[in-house]
């Protein structure tokens, strides 16, 4: 039996800002994981990655990252993606800083 597919989001870094971005159902990029498209089908994930990579002139290094459905949209399943979502733990820099200014 094939292993069950772990849902994915597509994530990358913005070319100019360098910060973490996520691919949405509208083929746009968001700064918030919760607004990302959660892909639950393996074949679909590869097609969506190709779609995302069409925008390689403005993004860097798109890849599929494991995620799970949460109350407010996709959530990370691994601590690395959790850090990418928030920012470093020694200062309130990165996304957590942006959030504090909202």
């Amino acid at each position: 039996m094939p292993r069950p597919f772990t849902p994915k989001v597509i994530t990358a870094n913005d070319l100019l800002e360098g910060d973490v971005i996520y691919f949405t159902t509208a083929n746009t990029w968001t700064r918030h994981l919760s607004e990302a498209e959660l892909i639950t089908d393996e074949a679909e994930s590869q097609l969506r990655l190709l779609e995302a990579e069409k925008q390689n002139l403005t993004i860097v290094g798109a890849y599929l990252a494991d995620a799970k459905a949460g109350e407010n949209g996709p959530e990370p399943t691994h601590f690395r993606e959790d850090f990418r979502r928030k920012g470093p733990s020694n200062y309130r820099h990165g996304k957590q800083e942006a959030a504090a200014h909202v």
Partner: peptide, 13 residues
């Protein structure tokens, strides 16, 4: 960019 010291890391360049 690497030859000139510019990396892309987790949250930023």
């Amino acid at each position: 960019r690497l030859m000139n010291g510019l990396y892309l890391q987790l949250h930023a360049y």
